[in-house]
Amino acid sequence: MTLTAGAFYLFAFVAVAAGFLVISARNPVHSVLWLILTFFSAAGLFVLMGAEFLAMLLVIVYVGAVAVLFLFVVMMLDINFAQFRKGALQYIPIGGLVGLILLAELVTLVMAWQFGDKVADNVTAPIPAAEQVENVKAMGAILYTDYLFIFQTAGLILLVAMIGAIVLTHRQRAGVKRQNISKQVARKPKDAYEMVEVKSGEGIGSASKKG
């Protein structure tokens, strides 16, 4: 048990510290790297809670894909972030206020939250203990039965958003030469060159007229 507790405090401390460094690092690339460490520690916390499937998804989706794109953009953009930060201090009061309100709301929520009397009657399927059923199977059994339409709708919304982003940023420019792979592969030697009899002293001028 002490091992688990130690691991929890380690992950929690690293997550909070790295989260703080995300916003305090001067170099934006460092910020993204700290963000990755935060994601990673959060994944560790998920594992400790027995939610190994969520932990792996967090690593694959956020660390493996989203953060890579962040890193890409931050590395490629030539933005002077120091200049951005110049006036940042004047926003501290309002930012702090928003943070305080969020914190107060969260605290109220957690304090007031309790299971209703009739929850046990309303549950459609019995809830097995966490050790009895695998994460993946438990989530699949819920996502693909009770919440099938919501799940599919969420997927569709993401698909539409993706296609929308591509359509909005895609521009057709005139005069761009495109590669047609099948055309290139289907090209035969006789389409590409022509054998010409060149008489001495006359050059190739008359023969190449037809090409």
Partner: peptide, 11 residues
């Protein structure tokens, strides 16, 4: 012997 072994390797 992880239950999510393949996902772990992918991650």
């Amino acid at each position: 012997d992880l239950n999510v072994g393949i996902l772990y390797i992918l991650a």
